[in-house]
Design a protein around this nucleic acid. Structure first.
Lengths: 190, 190
DNA sequence: GACTAACTTGAACCCCCCGTCAACTTGGGC
DNA sequence: GCCCAAGTTGACGGGGGGTTCAAGTTAGTC
């Protein structure tokens, strides 16, 4: 079970690893749609090799998405989970997710597409979505957050922010934050 | 003054008009970045003719933007201007603008880019922005709208919605509206 | 050290769109 | 009706990126 026959040759293994690392860099900097040529160049390899080893962009994404995103999200969830007040916890979660969307194009792409084709990825998004649902329910129970807000609403809010973040080239972080605070205020009970 | 010498030949005049009409259709349906080939095909003309007659995409946009956008905005301003309550007027203006952004990709593109190069266009955007500023100030005077909201904030809110609207392929109109109502609530005073 | 299966390469081909221009039509003045 | 300037065409070159595959290279076995 540790090693099924299809063992790779030494050079292939080296390349797979190099490509993974390069993809992490490139995707982090430019999002999941960065040209594969760029990844290939960064890995010191030819484009063809990426196709051979990963089957294309989708496969490459699957191979790095965990590292690119899972720990980031897990970190946020535990960090925010430590907040006592449920309403603050809920708002804190949204703020953190929204900031990740702004600061990390790749993570944002993950949040935005839930690429149909990557099990790992959709599972991740669903888990995040469930967590958000939990936070929401608890926050609503205290009466601080509007009762008519649904988990779907939260998904939409996250998706929308992701779209906006993707469109912000540099700067604007301040007005991005300022503006999501308006939205946040609109989720509270009067 | 009625007719400067550079009179066009009959076929040219016919084509100019056909291209304008085709551009209106195509731009309305697909936004200002639709392929010019498509406009050409719709006009029963070759791409080259568009370049000859309008100098390129920018010129073509200038030639239709008024019809595509100005009257729409003017309509909103007068319609909304009839609302008595300043706060409702302000909110009504935002709602209408946001709906236009959703329903008309071309108008949305106008709102989003303010293409540097079209005087008519930037003038339009600025006028709309000023009107919004007026509505905002009046609404704030009644105390219904938060005092710390600035005209720049409003511009950002409109820009952001435009970005979102552009990303919505079909459906979603309901959740689009639902979600901007959240934002709207966040602009009110508690 | 030779030999083969595994690996890699990069040119070739595809799609989509922009903008140009030499060659060809045609309107309309004479 | 002729004729040429005005007008139109569509092929061409350029850029960006994706995907494939024949030909060349190399790890690793015997």
């Amino acid at each position: 079970m540790t090693s099924d026959p299809p063992r790779l040759r030494a050079d292939a293994r080296r390349n797979v690893e190099g490509i993974r690392l390069a993809a992490l860099d490139v995707f982090r900097a430019g999002g999941l749609n960065s040209p594969l040529d760029e990844v290939a160049r960064a890995a010191g390899v030819s484009k063809g090799t990426i196709y051979h080893r990963f089957g294309g962009r989708q496969g490459l994404i699957d191979a790095v998405v965990e590292e690119l995103f899972a720990e980031r999200i897990a970190g946020i969830i535990t960090a925010v989970g430590a907040i006592e007040d449920p309403a603050e916890r809920f708002e804190g979660y949204l703020r953190q997710i929204w900031l990740v969307a702004f600061d990390e194009p790749a993570a944002n792409d993950v949040l935005l597409r839930a690429q149909p084709g990557s099990g790992a990825l959709t599972a991740l998004c669903e888990r995040a979505s469930e967590v958000a649902g939990g936070f929401l329910a608890e926050a609503q129970a205290t009466g601080a957050i509007r009762a008519d807000l649904t988990p779907d609403d939260v998904d939409v809010l996250i998706w929308e922010r992701g779209i906006i973040a993707r469109a912000c080239d540099e700067q604007h972080r301040d007005s991005y934050v300022r503006s999501f605070e308006h939205t946040l205020r609109g989720l509270r009970n009067p």
